[in-house]
Write a protein that binds this DNA or RNA. Structure first.
Length: 932
RNA sequence: GCGAAAGUGGCGGAACUGGUAGACGCGCUGGACUUAGAAUCCAGUGGGGAAACCCGUGAGGGUUCGAGUCCCUCCUUUCGCACCA
């Protein structure tokens, strides 16, 4: 081996070896345990970023580690190649999205290879290839046949100037990103997938995914949002019948049927048919509806915006009392959720309460809660009240000043009278179900929550005015996108036959690749070559559907296609049965809900079509954290911030000793910049680090080592140039240690029976470190601590100065263990070091070494002795000493006894099994040194 | 607004099952080598204290022989919220 570590040469040689030996191409081997290690496929944006490096390094380390454990490992890679960025790029440089995308793929594939990932490139998939997306289309048609795919109108953001549909991210403060025009809501025909049909199963199966992070399962459960409640119909009063020109009823869903007698108004969404009917003769209402439609439908906005409403003048009838109730249009009711209408019970729902107070609507109490329940409510309020009573604050106002704004009102209310009902201020117990009984509710008065719901639902059902029902927050998946660069939806619109599916034998409907979007709508809609076709049913001329599919469709099943990318007669074949499910999936937490839920849904649909045998696609999930870097900027004269790359910013102390940051502009001028803290690496904040530059300077192994060492995979990773240098330094130290060792010639055979104490100590350290690394990587997925263990071991080797034959043999073993431990993380350096250590077989084909249990044994062990939980001494006892011996040793220690103050004071001694710790419990603090 | 996660030295982080707080790395300080610098190597490095010791894991309370870890409340930060991927 070379004396000095040259990463470029080492990496070139190792990569050439893997390529020549097709080290990572795998076949299905019956009877051999498989391991499918999958990283989320990248969007081909042009260049790899640090997030990719982190994601794929985690995957590669696991893949290589499992390979060393003897598993048949599949690690594939592909491209999520459809999507909006390609269209944006096309608009700014005029290059067709297809060309831009394919160029990016070429470049990024080269970059991935430079990082040394053990990928089976023979299985590469790009979702923009017709050979791939034809199966999107094929399955869509199967879903159409099964009624899982259907058409209905959906609401979209419409830019009236560009005459185009905008994605949420293209709407900035209610205006189109390119035109600045006020964005409108438009209803257009849209295709949906009936994911809610699987809601119950998607929810239930979460419990059977113990390999997923708890928080992701929780997020999905909340997203599905199952709630049990009642559907209740409020029959139209004569005025509404007239406006709707029909008999009918306003249907709502509620989880609080017990509060039915507290309904004082009805709130409906702006798009609700009753609202539209009322607006027909009411221009003021029509204007309000228009205003609501312009508003955001994003949940975060809806939840925080001011609750506005307007009366329709129409009424519905209470199903029990027959009393007319006025219908209001409210901006906090969404057409897309439930029935688009809610019953307003201001007495017991906080949103309704706010709405009623704002609009002077009656507030009625129909539930009362026992006083104890009310008192149990808010411990803060009670704690504050208690503190005040005991004089912790000098005055009531003083206390009110000390609590935060949002708590102040609650506290004030609590102090005045927390137990009575008042329509002026919301009290936390108004919404309580537990311990609640109905009041002022006719024959239901006195019933508790569940009994009241059961009774009311029963009678409503008898009368045909309602029933119990389960409602999901989850909505059906709208997959239509009015965009060019996506998978065409395989439908044909015929004037006489209507909507006709493209016959299977005509698939794929190929997306023309030469179009260039210009921002004014979907170019497919202007392409005669694409549009014009003949109706498969009647043979007359017809038009193709121009909408394309959501790119989440592409990514919902790509991991199945890796198993059989060359299969042109079916979507998947028996090879998928071998590889699926994915054993380990790795990707960003940002996909915790949508992508993962859609993939689970897609898997279940394919299972029900008899194409798969698995219920869930991903057995284990690892969600890696973001990569952060410092953000520096300066506010320009125009109010816009200019961002400066951290690489160009220097720090120094000013005259007052404060740290200031400076950068030098291209014209040579030095300016001060503001430090904005840490932020996700991004183009917009100019704080990205280019992996390519890093590889060039330090090599891929350093990049891999640093990203794995700086923090555990699930946490954020802070960029640090010094940290990268530290990683590089460690590899060089390891290299030198191995070089110096092998430079002295071949090591003799290790004779484990005849070792000195220091030799045994180094062996123990090596095998302990090895066991720790296996556990850290294999079970805990904590690569940073596995690396720390290898560093510790190298430090021990460095301190080990023993030129004897057995000394060299022990050192050889330790260096081999370090090399194998690190082989998954720094595979190129390990490849060369392993050869240097005298092995003919490549390290990539080596198994993970076995821990020699006999190396771990010790003659005596050290016990930590505590007195009343405080560390007071250490004693050494023979290995395997019993509790009495440990106790005696502890009490024989002079320093310990100083704090015990005589044997008589000892109440008990706790010896923790397997922890090498003993705690002496004494009655009172003893020892005469406290008062100093 | 709702939901989720996280707060430990100067910094990234470690402490896995309630059992020695700060592994490992960075930075810093001192030293060696060098004409000098870079690189490398050695030693030290939570705070206070001359020491004995004391204090320390966002804040406050609790459980326990023992709490960074468990329970309650609060504060702060970050992330997600359905057409970005």
């Amino acid at each position: 081996m070379e004396e000095h570590y040259d990463p470029a040469a080492v990496e070139r040689a190792a990569q050439a070896y893997w390529e020549q030996n097709r080290s990572f191409e795998v076949k299905e081997e019956k009877g051999r345990e498989k391991y499918y290690c999958l990283s989320m496929l990248p969007y081909p944006s042009g260049r790899l970023h640090m997030g990719h490096v982190r994601n794929y390094t985690i995957g590669d380390v696991l893949a290589r580690f499992m390979r060393m454990q003897g598993r048949n490992v599949l690690q594939p890679m592909g491209w999520d190649a459809f999507g909006l960025p390609a269209e944006n790029a096309a608009m700014s440089n005029g290059v067709p999205p297809a060309q831009w995308t394919r160029q990016n793929i070429e470049h990024m594939r080269t970059q991935l290879k430079m990082l040394g990932f053990g990928i089976d490139w023979s299985r590469e998939v790009a979702t923009c290839d017709p050979g791939y997306y034809r199966w999107n289309q094929w399955l869509f048609l199967r879903m159409l046949e099964k009624g899982i795919a259907y058409r209905k109108t959906g609401v979209v953001n419409w830019d009236p100037v560009d005459k185009t549909v905008l994605a949420n991210e293209q709407v900035i403060e209610g205006r189109g990103w390119r035109t600045g025009a006020l964005v409108e809501k438009r209803e257009i025909p849209t295709y949906y997938l009936n994911i809610t049909r699987y809601a119950d199963e998607l929810l239930g199966c979460l419990e059977r995914l113990p390999g997923w992070p708890e928080r992701v399962r929780l997020m999905q459960a909340n997203w599905i949002g199952r709630s049990e409640g009642c559907e209740i119909s409020f029959p139209y009063a004569p005025d509404t019948r007239a406006a709707m020109t029909a008999e009918g009823a306003l249907k709502v869903f509620t989880t609080r049927a017990d509060t039915l007698f507290g309904v004082t108004f009805m709130a409906i969404a702006a798009e609700h048919p009753v609202a539209l009917a009322a607006a027909a003769s009411n221009p003021v209402l029509a204007a309000f509806i228009e205003e609501c439609r312009r508003g955001s439908v994003m949940e975060a906005d809806v939840a925080t915006q001011e609750k506005k409403g307007m009366r329709t003048g129409l009424h519905v009838l209470h199903p029990f009392t027959g009393k007319p109730i006025e219908v209001w249009v409210a901006n906090y009711v969404l057409m897309g959720y439930g029935e688009g209408a809610v019953m307003g019970v201001p007495g017991h729902d906080e949103r309704d309460f706010e709405f009623a107070n704002r609009n002077a609507i009656e507030i009625a109490q129909v539930v009362d809660v026992a006083d104890e329940a009310k008192e149990r409510l808010d411990p803060v309020v009670r704690a504050c009240a208690e503190a005040w009573k005991h004089g912790a604050f000098s005055s009531r106002d003083g206390m009110l000043d000390r609590v935060k704004e949002s708590d102040r009102q609650t506290l004030q209310t609590a102090l005045s009278d927390s137990k009575s009902f008042t329509p002026n201020e919301w009290r936390p117990w108004y919404g309580l179900k537990e311990g609640a009984r109905c009041v002022h509710s006719g024959e239901f008065s006195g019933l508790e929550f569940q009994a009241a719901v059961d009774a009311i639902a029963g009678i409503l059902e008898q009368r045909g005015l309602g029933r119990k029902r389960v409602q999901y927050r989850l909505r059906d998946w709208g997959i239509s996108r009015q965009r060019y660069w996506g998978c065409p939806i395989p439908l044909i619109h015929c004037e006489s036959c209507g909507e006709v599916p493209v016959p299977d034998e005509q698939l794929p409907v190929v997306l023309p690749e030469d179009l260039v979007p210009d921002g004014s709508g979907n170019p497919l809609a202007k392409s005669a070559a694409f549009l014009e076709c003949t109706c498969p049913r009647c043979g007359r001329s017809a038009r193709r559907e121009t909408d394309t599919m959501d790119t989440f469709v592409d990514s919902s099943w790509y991991y199945m296609r890796y198993a059989c990318p060359d299969q042109d007669r079916a979507m998947v074949d028996e090879r998928a049965a071998y590889w699926l499910p994915v054993d380990q999936y790795i990707g960003g937490i940002e996909h915790a809900i949508l992508h993962l839920l859609y993939s689970r849904f897609w898997t279940k649909v394919m299972r029900d079509l008899g194409m798969l045998a698995v219920d869930e696609p991903f057995t284990n999930l690892l969600t890696q954290g973001m990569v952060l870097n410092h953000v520096y900027s300066q506010a320009g004269a125009d109010g816009r911030r200019r961002y400066f790359s951290p690489a160009d910013v220097r720090s120094r102390r000013d005259a007052a000793g404060a740290e200031v940051f400076e950068t030098t502009l291209p014209d040579g001028e030095t300016i001060r910049v503001d430090y904005q803290g840490l932020g996700k690496m991004s183009k917009s904040e100019n704080n990205g680090v280019d992996p390519q530059g890093l590889i060039k300077r330090f090599g891929a192994d350093t990049a891999r080592l640093f990203t794995m060492f700086a923090s555990p995979p699930e946490q954020t990773l802070e960029w640090s140039d010094e940290g990268v240098q530290g990683a590089s330094r460690f590899i060089r130290r390891l290299w030198s240690a191995v070089y110096e060792h092998v430079d002295r010639g071949q090591s003799p055979r290790l004779e484990t029976g005849a070792l000195t104490d220091p030799q045994r100590a180094l062996r123990r350290a090596a095998h302990q470190g090895l066991a720790k690394a296996a556990d850290d990587i294999g079970r805990r997925r904590n690569f940073n601590t596995a690396i720390a263990a290898s560093m510790e071991l190298l430090n021990s080797v460095g301190r080990f100065d023993d030129p004897s034959d057995q000394g060299r043999a022990v050192r050889q073993e330790a260096l081999e263990i370090i090399t194998l431990m690190l082989a998954p993380i720094i595979p190129h350096a390990a490849h060369e070091l392993w050869r240097g250590l005298g092995h003919a077989r490549a390290v990539v084909d080596e198994p993970w070494p076995a821990v020699d249990e006999s190396a771990l044994s010790q003659d005596s062990v050290e016990f930590v002795v505590q007195v009343n939980g405080k560390l007071r001494g250490r004693v050494r006892v023979p290995a395997g000493a019993d509790e009495t011996a440990i106790r005696e040793a502890a009490l024989a220690d002079e320093h310990v006894m100083k704090f015990v103050g005589g044997r008589a004071a000892v109440k008990r001694v706790i010896v923790v099994p397997g922890r090498q710790i003993a705690n002496v419990v004494v009655a009172a603090p003893a020892g005469g040194h406290q008062d100093g």
